[in-house]
């Protein structure tokens, strides 16, 4: 599989990354070389092997349901660009 310029532009838009045409061309080449690596791996016969969600055969450790965090919003909001009445302010977004 190889990506077209349109694919690259679309992925960039989904990831909210602004790309010039020159950057998109360079990125297309880089991404396609990664797809080359994947193609090599996909040549391996994996019939009869269950797909894995993780590289290791270990499982998630669970936390007891207890409140352990305290209110630290003052410290967090000290580095926020805009805050009012305890709320983070962002440019207006309405779908």
């Amino acid at each position: 599989m190889s990506l077209t310029q349109d694919d690259v532009k679309r992925i960039a838009r989904l990831a909210r990354i602004e790309t010039s045409d020159a950057e998109a061309l360079a990125t297309q080449a880089q991404l396609n070389s990664i797809f080359g690596l994947i193609a090599t791996m996909q040549a391996v016969d994996t019939r009869g092997i269950a797909p894995m969600a993780h590289a290791q055969e270990v499982y998630q450790r669970l936390r007891e349901d207890a409140v352990t965090e305290t209110d630290r919003h003052a410290a967090f909001q000290a580095v926020a660009p805009a805050v009012e009445n305890g709320l983070y302010l962002v440019p207006k977004v309405i779908e």
């Binding site: 349901d65 207890a66 965090e69 630290r72 709320l87």
Partner: peptide
């Protein structure tokens, strides 16, 4: 639950804004 799914913050309803939002 008492706490959130991936952190130990409280899930109680109606708290002052962002006082139950951890790192």
């Amino acid at each position: 639950t008492k706490s959130k799914i991936f952190s130990g913050s409280s899930t109680a309803f109606g708290a002052a804004p962002n006082t139950q939002a951890s790192a």
